[in-house]
């Protein structure tokens, strides 16, 4: 992979830091009037998801990371791995539980997800921003109680638990924003 100098650091650039692939979030040029120039850089470790802040000397370089974000279709889970397919080439990739992470609770077969490949293997999975899922368990609905604004927990078919309005019942399908885990509406 190519090396990238601090002046090429842009948000979204993937670089290697201490052996882990990281994505650059912010890069601020700092220079005291009479001192050495440096760059304060915020990065997200793509393995752990942690955000770190490092200060590099201006002109210093980091090795690029072989990281690629790709839209893929979720196929199935065989108990150990989750399988994803590239829609153009039909090439399949197996992701372990670590890579699937929190996406697990939202995944339905045939969903299009963003799979981040690191050295060709899935590193992380981002589910679709919005999913429509059936409620499999919740307290009985209070029909007609649509105006109260109260909420109750409901477990969805994929395993996630979200807060839904009181009038919803088992078997209803709801739309959820996976980024916040918030209920968006009922799907008729």
């Amino acid at each position: 992979m190519a090396n990238y100098s601090t002046n090429e650091f842009r948000s979204g650039l993937k670089v290697m830091l201490d052996g882990d692939p990281c994505s650059i979030l912010e890069n601020e040029f700092v220079k005291p009037g009479k001192g050495q120039a440096f760059n304060r850089v915020k990065l997200r470790n793509l393995k752990t998801g942690r955000v770190l802040e490092k200060t590099f000397k201006s002109g210093e370089a980091l090795e690029g990371a072989d990281v690629l974000d790709m839209d893929m279709q979720y196929l199935y889970n065989d108990g150990d791995f989750w399988y994803f397919m590239e829609p153009e080439s039909f090439e399949q990739h197996q992701a372990n539980e670590n890579a699937v992470g929190d996406a697990l609770q939202w995944l339905s077969e045939q969903d299009i997800c963003v799979v981040t490949l690191y050295n060709g293997a899935p590193l992380s999975v981002v589910p679709p921003n919005h999913v429509e899922l059936e409620i499999v368990e919740t307290d009985p609905g209070l029909r007609g109680d649509t105006a109260q604004g109260g909420s109750k927990p409901a477990r969805l078919v994929t395993g996630a638990t979200v807060k839904v309005p009181l009038f919803l019942d088992q078997g209803d399908v709801v739309k959820v924003d996976t980024r916040t885990g918030e209920y968006q509406g009922r799907v008729k």
Partner: peptide, 11 residues
């Protein structure tokens, strides 16, 4: 020394 001090003071 000067460069280390610059970094520490700035950051």
């Amino acid at each position: 020394r000067a460069n280390c001090l610059d970094l520490l003071f700035s950051v």
